[in-house]
């Protein structure tokens, strides 16, 4: 849990944007989380930015379906060769 030493009065937006990843990771203390949610209830601009971070995460996740990183046949054969050579050299 991170202690952010939040100011006593209303959170400024400049601080809120720094807390977005901590918020989404549920790494804020219950008090900090409540303060942040209080701010979000009042500030449409910060909600817009929070939504943009969420969308960014979703869009970045789509890179996982990139076919160029699948195991290709020559590499598969090469790595199996490494494994078989290693296995053959083991005692028992």
């Amino acid at each position: 849990m991170t202690d952010h030493q939040l100011p006593d009065d209303d959170l400024p937006c400049v601080l809120v944007v720094d807390l977005i990843t901590d918020y989404l990771d549920d790494a804020l203390s219950p008090h900090e989380r409540a303060r942040l949610e209080e701010h979000l209830a009042e500030c449409d601009d910060c909600v817009t930015v929070l939504d943009q971070f969420r969308t960014t995460i979703t869009v970045t996740g789509r890179l996982a379906s990139d076919d160029v990183d699948r195991l290709d046949e020559p590499t598969r054969a090469q790595l199996i060769g490494v494994f078989q050579q290693w296995a053959a050299g083991r005692p028992g």
Binding site: P12, C13, V14, L15, C43, D44, D45, C46, T48, V49
Partner: peptide
């Protein structure tokens, strides 16, 4: 510390 211009949704 608050936004100087409004944030625009995408």
């Amino acid at each position: 510390g608050h936004w100087s211009t409004p944030r625009t949704p995408w």
